[in-house]
Amino acid sequence: MLEIVTLYVIVVVPFLALAAVVPAVWGWGLSWLDVGLAIGFYFFTLLGVTVGYHRYFTHGSFRAKRPLRLGLAVAGSMAIQGPVVQWVADHRRHHAFSDRDGDPHSPWRYGTDLHSVLKGMFHAHLGWLFERRKTSMERYAPDLLKDSALVRTDRMFVVWAGISLFLPAVIGGLVTMSWAGALSAFFWAGLVRIAVLHHVTWSINSVCHVVGDRPFVSPGRDRATNFWPLAILSAGESWHNLHHADPTCARHGVLRGQIDISARVIWIFEKLGWAWNVKWPDPVRLAAKRRQPAAVGG
């Protein structure tokens, strides 16, 4: 119980702190323009990761036309979580060794007592990014390395990251015709937006392997869970249990009431003819992976 409460605190407190700050600074460095820019850039870059980096490039949940393919790589890069090829290689290695030796960011690497889990949570959330050992792109993402246009996009990561940080400031400055408007937009729609986005997506690595429901059976020692509080902010990525049970499925939130914004975006791409061969949930496959309730002794 203490473990669960602690984990909820880790996730919720930063958002409560942000919510407390907003009324205090409203009209003194925060405006509706800042809020609109922050939300717009947040979901644009988030979907670049969830739809692009994750469901498309890593798992091949659908096929995409060339402009969409490169556009998703750019949008994902603007989330400032690393170049696309390295990100994909890391995530494929994570699935290959989920919650076992070799997983780059398992929160269970140090043990199962509270102290060890919290130490592992920090590692899964952030610490693993500073490790010197990198995942081999040649081994885990050879298909992406064969795409010369994608490799060029990958190498321009610093450019996309700079655009992501400074474009809100440019827009804010032009709309308000002031340096104050530019600085405010840079802070809220640039720095704060990126910090929130990172916290949410890193929580999929940490929180969503420790606390939550497991309605589906995932392979091996995998402990991926569903954590509903992050469903909207993660665009459906926190329905993580189904994803690990059926990694190539384009929809992660497959049960009643599970909102999955990323799946809806893929559906729109399909309707527009930009995406095809979408791997939507298969009822028979889902039923086979559904966890059976424990038998009650008589």
Rank of each mutant, 00 (worst) to 15 (best):
V5H: 13
T6V: 14
L7H: 15
Y8D: 14
V13C: 09
V13R: 11
A19H: 06
A19I: 04
A20T: 05
V21Q: 09
G27F: 06
G29H: 10
W32K: 01
L33C: 04
T45N: 09
L46W: 01
L47P: 00
G48F: 00
R55V: 02
G60M: 05
A64E: 02
K65R: 15
R66N: 11
Q81L: 03
Q81R: 02
V88F: 05
A89P: 07
R100P: 13
D101A: 14
Y110F: 15
T112A: 14
G120L: 01
F122C: 12
A124E: 09
L126T: 15
F130R: 03
T135D: 04
Y140T: 02
K146G: 15
D147F: 06
D147H: 05
A149G: 09
L150N: 05
L150W: 07
V151G: 08
M156D: 14
V158R: 14
G162C: 08
G162A: 11
A169F: 05
V170S: 01
V175P: 09
S178I: 00
A182F: 05
A185D: 08
I194W: 13
V196E: 07
L197S: 08
L197G: 07
S206L: 02
S206H: 03
C208N: 12
P215R: 02
F216S: 02
S218E: 11
D222Y: 12
R223G: 10
T225H: 10
E237C: 01
H240S: 00
H240P: 01
H244C: 03
H244N: 01
A245Y: 10
A245R: 05
L255E: 14
Q258P: 09
D260T: 05
A263Q: 05
W267A: 12
E270T: 02
L272M: 14
L272I: 09
G273P: 03
K279V: 10
K279D: 06
W280I: 00
P281R: 00
D282A: 06
P283C: 03
P283V: 01
R285N: 09
A288L: 11
R290M: 08
A294E: 15
A295Y: 12
V296L: 12
